[in-house]
């Protein structure tokens, strides 16, 4: 599994070959670009400050402004620019979504590989553990985890500045770490099961048996033979898992246990907008549409990739 330029060229060709996959990828790309450009757009005054409380943002009764009156997507109950908050929210959603997807994939693929490859008692133990994780509601796991590794957690004290995503701005970093770890830790069991099933299938194919007979080490077996063969499945699952992690992140935000408040988060925005639904429905509709579009894009990408790479699924 060599990650050279050819790999990306192949991926690009696969994505372009399928209309669904291309559409999904395009929408994701748009959101990523917007998210990346947000601070620059703010500096150029194309976009308001997402956290700046602004009296001009409220009408004469002190209510949120509806879309159009100087604010493209209106303003919220504190006079903040909704457009700016939605775009900054994309940074949170995409970052947490992708980071937790990577966490889930790492755990899921490892557990599935070990379980499928070694079988026996290890398989039994790992699959029982997977099942236990499937039976606990994710929101509760999320609560407990958040308090374990959160900013004021007592077990681990990880300061965001010590982490690789140091280049992101401060308002974003608070609480991000715990939220994505939490979502990653609750999203892997499905992945583990499917990877295990795939490994069980590939393991018995002739080329793996041949490699074994030739005395290939387990590492070589995993890296050269098993992983490349389950890669298409993992990629499809990864796209669909990202859709779910983004939904879960929004859900946690909605319940008030997601990324903490000053940071613009789509789920939190919907909770904050709810009391104003009757007079200012855009406060609920806009962030909701953003969630649906992003999640839909990842689902459609996964769907398209599956059609393109797994001919058995949809001939």
């Amino acid at each position: 599994m060599s990650l050279n330029f050819g790999f990306f060229k192949t991926s690009l060709r696969i994505i372009c070959a399928n209309r669904l996959a291309a559409t999904g990828a395009l929408i994701i790309l748009l959101f990523v670009l917007l998210a990346l450009a947000a601070p620059t757009m703010m500096r150029l005054h194309l976009l308001g400050d997402p956290n700046q409380l602004n009296l001009n943002g409220l009408d004469k009764d002190g209510m949120p402004r509806s879309p159009g009156h100087g604010y493209l997507l209106g303003s919220d109950n504190l006079g903040r620019d909704v457009l700016s908050r939605v775009i900054y929210g994309a940074r949170v959603s995409l970052l947490v979504g992708v980071a937790s997807m990577l966490t889930a994939t790492l755990i899921g693929v490892t557990v599935g590989l070990l379980s499928g490859l070694y079988g026996g008692k290890l398989d039994l133990a790992l699959m029982r553990f997977t099942e236990m994780n499937l039976t606990i509601p994710s929101i509760l796991l999320a609560m407990a985890f958040t308090s374990l590794i959160g900013d004021n957690g007592r077990i681990m004290h990880l300061h965001p500045a010590a982490l690789p995503w140091h280049f992101l701005d401060v308002t974003l970093k608070r609480g991000l770490l715990s939220v994505f770890l939490v979502i990653g830790f609750v999203s892997w069991p499905g992945m583990a099961r499917i990877v295990r099933a795939q490994v069980l299938g590939v393991k018995e194919r002739e080329f793996v048996l041949a490699a074994r007979a030739l005395g290939a080490s387990h590492w070589r077996l995993i890296w050269r033979h098993l992983l490349p063969n389950i890669l298409p499945t993992v990629i499809v699952l990864a796209a669909m898992t990202t859709a779910n992690t983004i939904l879960l992140e929004a859900g946690l935000g909605y319940l008030g246990i997601g990324v903490p408040p000053p940071a613009p988060d789509w789920g939190t925005m919907i909770t904050e907008g709810q009391p104003y639904f009757a007079t200012a429905p855009h406060l609920v509709i806009v962030p909701g549409v953003a969630i649906v579009l992003t999640v839909l894009a990842f689902n459609v990408l996964g769907q398209g990739l599956q059609e393109q790479m797994g001919p058995r699924q949809r001939p």
């Binding site: 929004a250 859900g251 789920g267 709810q274 509709i285």
Partner: peptide, 26 residues
């Protein structure tokens, strides 16, 4: 149907519930 189905599994439950409650009930 594929597109509609994909939309259906991309909807956040709390949001859809709010919107339907607002439009159909309120």
């Amino acid at each position: 149907t594929l597109v509609v189905a994909t939309v259906s599994l991309s909807l956040p439950a709390f949001w859809l519930a709010r919107i339907l409650q607002y439009c159909l009930a309120y």
